[in-house]
Amino acid sequence: MSTPLASQGTALAVANPWAVVPSLGNLDAYISAVNRLPMLTLAQEQEFARKLRDENDLEAAGKLVLSHLRLVVSVSRKYLGYGLPHGDLIQEGNIGLMKAVKRFDPDQGVRLVSYALHWIKAEIHEYILKNWRMVKVATTKAQRKLFFNLRSMKQGFKDDEGVQTHRDSLTDSQIETMARELNVKREEVIEMEARMAGGDVLLDPSPSDEGDEAFGPIAYLADVGHEPTQMIESRQRDELATDGITAALATLDDRSRRIVEERWLKVNDDGSGGLTLHDLAAEYGVSAERIRQIESAAMKKMKKALAAYA
């Protein structure tokens, strides 16, 4: 059993500090518990921060983190509009808090709550950008700033009568105002709004209720030419068409090889083929049927050679 928390205003005197915080699986219980954790005084914060810095005291680090978990809950609530689980936002914010505690210098004259705020927001921002949409919506620093300010600025605009408006699309003057205040191009404001307003599209949709085959982007976005098995088959075909044919022709006698080349491999400048059966028959002084038989025997021999080559 863990030791109960000390009274308000005193240090977090527990044998296992983390035992007082429920799992994020029960979000209501977690929030209720962290809101009951006592805040540290300036003297206590300085004492624990120096112990962590100078002695690597992990218990002191735990007390610093525990006393600021309520800050993470408060900050995470501001990002619920992005449709991500509140528990996940808190968890990412807690990572930022722990990073802040690790880097906090008590001699800089700044309270941990002010220093940690940046780290908490940074981790939550990174999580949202990675998970809000499959395709990244913000890559540069300016785009990130636009992404996280567009919603709040849009809600803060008022109409001509001074009444707050929540219209779906921005007016030209509102776009200009956003671009000026956030130091981005008006085209970037328009593009970001379109990205945030656009719905997600399933790449591979399920069949409809009527049983018809569904058609989605996966049908035309897939690059079959770069699919591994297709690439292997294509390379094998290329090898057979060059090295394989050369090796197969080498197994034939001169007459058979010339007949095959004239009949199947030779292409004239006008697009026509080589010699006909009758042309070759006249050249070798045999019948056209005999040329056909030689050609057939040569093709069978080449087929065996190609099979062995493959």
Rank of each mutant, 00 (worst) to 15 (best):
Q155H: 10
Q155T: 05
G156M: 06
G156E: 12
F157T: 02
K158L: 03
D160L: 13
E161D: 13
E161L: 13
G162C: 15
Q164F: 11
Q164Y: 13
T165G: 07
H166Y: 15
D168V: 14
D168M: 15
D168I: 14
S169I: 08
D172E: 14
Q174I: 02
I175N: 10
I175C: 12
E176G: 02
E176T: 04
T177I: 02
T177H: 08
A179P: 03
A179M: 04
A179R: 05
R180T: 01
R180G: 00
R180F: 01
E181M: 00
E181C: 01
L182V: 10
N183Y: 04
V184R: 08
V184W: 06
K185W: 04
K185D: 12
E187L: 05
E187S: 10
E188H: 11
I190E: 01
E191Q: 10
E191A: 07
M192L: 04
A197Y: 08
G199F: 13
D200Y: 04
L202Y: 11
L203Y: 08
L203I: 05
L203E: 13
L203S: 12
D204Q: 13
P205L: 09
S206W: 10
S206F: 09
G211D: 06
D212N: 14
A214V: 13
A214Q: 05
A214Y: 10
P217Q: 00
P217E: 03
A219D: 15
L221I: 12
A222H: 12
A222V: 14
D223S: 07
V224G: 00
G225H: 14
G225S: 11
G225P: 04
H226I: 09
E227Y: 15
T229F: 07
S234V: 13
R235K: 09
R235G: 07
R237K: 05
L240Q: 05
T242W: 08
G244R: 00
G244Y: 03
A248W: 02
A250I: 00
A250K: 00
T251G: 01
D254H: 09
D254P: 07
S256L: 05
S256Q: 13
S256H: 05
R258D: 08
R258C: 03
I259C: 00
I259N: 02
E261D: 08
E261R: 10
E262W: 06
K266Y: 14
K266H: 11
V267I: 12
D269M: 08
D269E: 09
D270C: 07
D270G: 09
G271E: 08
S272N: 04
G273Q: 02
G273F: 03
G274H: 03
L275A: 12
L275D: 14
T276Q: 11
L277A: 10
D279P: 03
L280C: 08
A281L: 03
A282M: 11
A282E: 15
A282V: 10
G285M: 01
S287K: 02
A288C: 09
A288M: 06
A288S: 14
R290P: 07
R292A: 12
